[in-house]
């Protein structure tokens, strides 16, 4: 058994201890309250152990019922099954309370009344319905909280994957090692610094979600310098961004994955190399960014709608609502283009 599964078993055991303890401590607290209230009212007859033995089984019956509800919550989303299970809980709890009430009646100091079992059962139903609701609410809060945390982790992992592909790092490290081996130490140092700059930006959690287009292009240039060393003469990149739109706000690291996509699917798959063209312009109230590359996306590579593009679209929607869009087009003469359109805003750092 691995360390991970051992620690999973340990936390599960801790959870079960806490659950059992909760259903034991609750009747103790209630019993103490009842007896204290009685003493304050000058009733010295109410026996602590009598009240506890009456209360304890009523609460303890919920331990197995909550285990059952939790198991069901983890294994099905069918509301019909949960409804049936809730009815069963009410039935079992009411029956348990009825049996216990009739059995303990003799020990009670209260003068005995003898309602029939059926009537007692019906009296208990409204209370056990409330208890069932409480158990369900607590367990669902726990299950949904766990699910939300899991989705958060997945989202963060996907966003890291979107920002830089792992094999980009390995290829760059290999290129740095190669530069050292062939005696180009200065180039190796420059490439290390550029990779450091990219890494810092990628791993920076506290980053403002938006940056200026100018800064985005500076970062992109670092990335392109690395890729130029790797691809050599096969890569040709042009940037058409007029000075007047460079102050525009854009989502940080939005262009880089699109350019990476272009290199992977356009330039890297063509024996003679290829070109990438990055452009920005203002269109009324919108800013339009385009990344075009030679080569059609369908040639020997999977379609370009993976995790990366879905993430980019989600970021645009989060930041700009309906005004943030990303579209991909393959035009006839073997050119693929990605177009980002978002609300034009200036200012900030």
């Amino acid at each position: 058994m691995g360390d991970t599964s051992k620690s999973a078993v340990r936390s599960r055991l801790r959870f079960e201890y806490a659950r059992t303890l909760a259903w034991l401590v609750a009747p103790l607290a209630v019993t103490t309250q009842i007896v204290l209230d009685a003493r304050l009212g000058d009733d010295l007859e109410t026996p602590f152990w009598g009240v506890l033995s009456y209360n304890l089984p009523r609460w303890v019956v919920w331990t197995p019922l909550s285990v059952w509800v939790q198991w069901l919550a983890g294994s099905t989303r069918s509301w019909r099954l949960h409804g049936i299970s809730a009815l069963l809980c009410v039935g079992i709890a009411s029956a348990a309370w009825t049996l216990q009430a009739t059995r303990l009646r003799n020990y009670s100091q209260v003068p005995p009344r003898s309602p029939p079992h059926a009537r007692l059962f019906l009296v208990f139903v409204p209370v056990t319905v409330l208890w069932t609701a409480l158990v369900y609410a607590a367990i669902m809060a726990w299950v949904w909280g766990r699910e939300a945390r899991r989705q958060l982790v997945v989202a963060r992992l996907e966003s890291l994957q979107r920002q830089l592909q792992p094999h980009f790092f390995f290829n760059t490290l290999h290129a740095i090692a190669s530069l050292v081996r062939v005696g180009r130490g200065d180039d190796a140092v420059a490439m290390t610094a550029r990779l450091g700059g990219l890494l810092r930006e990628t791993l920076n959690d506290a980053r403002d979600p938006e940056t200026s287009l100018e800064q985005e292009l500076t970062l992109l240039e670092q990335y392109l310098e690395i890729q130029r060393v790797r691809f050599g003469e096969r890569l040709s990149v042009t940037v058409h961004v007029p000075a007047e739109v460079r102050r525009a706000r854009v989502p940080g690291l939005m262009l880089q994955p699109l350019v990476e996509n272009s290199l992977e699917h356009g330039v890297a798959t063509q024996p003679g190399g290829g070109w990438v063209e990055i452009a920005a312009r203002r269109d009324g109230c919108d800013l339009v960014l385009t990344v075009r590359n030679s080569g059609s996306s369908s040639s020997s590579s999977p379609p370009r709608n993976g995790v990366g593009l879905r993430n980019s679209r989600e970021r645009l929607r989060t930041l700009y609502g309906e005004r943030g869009t990303l579209t991909l087009e393959a035009s006839g003469e073997a050119v693929t283009s990605a177009t980002v359109r978002l609300e034009y805003r200036e200012g900030g750092a």
Binding site: A175, S178, R181, V182, V229, R230, G232, R234
Partner: peptide, 14 residues
């Protein structure tokens, strides 16, 4: 290898 630098490295090592 499609990367010139990677080919140069292998050449050098060999």
């Amino acid at each position: 290898d499609d990367e010139p630098l990677a080919r140069q490295t292998l050449r050098l090592l060999l």
